[in-house]
Design a binder for these strands. Structure first.
Lengths: 133, 133
DNA sequence: TCATCTATATGCAAGCTGCATCTAGATGAT
DNA sequence: ATCATCTAGATGCAGCTTGCATATAGATGA
């Protein structure tokens, strides 16, 4: 069984997802210093991707796309072991883009909590059906 | 300019989005009582879709998909004005599905706040670059 | 030599969404 | 009567994101 890795957890039918959420995670990791895809993949665990690991193809594609848009730069680096790595660094533009993303996610959070408050509000009135049955 | 409606705001390039978020919103609205698509479209304003209104085609499609999966039922109803409406009601299965969604969204919220805490945590250390410059 | 690990990359298909467009009944103005 | 407009629902299509499978290839160790 070749290729990729991190294929264990079935990962099918997991709703829970913010569109393109991996992008800001990668940007934040790169804000901490340059890194390469394979390493970033491991460090994504911090963001709750442990049980539900990200797909490597997605990470590599996002990194390339970030580079196309000038938010990161890359160079090839010989590791002391294993094949060469493409090492990415955050650019100033990428730094700005990360902060844009954070503002956007805060807006998402606001929307989400609007939903929760609507939900709780509604369930207080109709506290018959649903969870407590 | 025919069809649909609610075409005003450009709505392009708004990142901020939770995949299939309209679905739980519609379920919650229907938990409050039966309704039809066009009316639901208006009531989505409560969930922060005011500046950024939902597309009617999406709503109609989600409603049909919910019906296919047995989460809502529909019947045709003659309104006192205008064309007939397809009126949807939440089924018991749909009620359960809504609560599933809420759990899922809470998980999304958890992930989101994990990101925020990583972000703040990181920015406290490197409080040079970024927002405050 | 061969399997395995590290590392990056591509092809493809499925799913979600937005935009444009279509149908069609109801309503109101001319 | 006719025509524009509003209400209501629906479809086609294209674009984007994702996950899965697979390809490539250097390094390492048995």
């Amino acid at each position: 069984m070749p290729g990729g890795r991190r294929r264990r957890g079935a990962h099918n039918r997991c709703e829970r997802r913010i569109t393109r959420f991996l992008e800001p995670c990668l940007l934040l990791l790169l804000h901490g210093g340059e890194s390469h895809g394979y390493e970033l993949l491991d460090n994504l665990g911090r963001f709750g991707f442990s049980e539900n690991p990200a797909d490597s193809s997605t990470i590599y594609r996002i990194l390339r796309s970030l580079e196309d848009r000038g938010f990161v730069t890359s160079r090839w680096a010989e590791g002391d072991s294993g094949p060469a790595r493409r090492v990415y660094s955050l650019s100033p533009a990428g730094d700005g883009y990360l902060h844009l993303w954070v503002g956007d996610l805060e807006e998402t959070d606001r929307i989400l909590h609007l939903f929760f408050s609507e939900y709780r509000n509604h369930m207080e009135l109709h506290h018959n059906s649903g969870k407590d049955t």
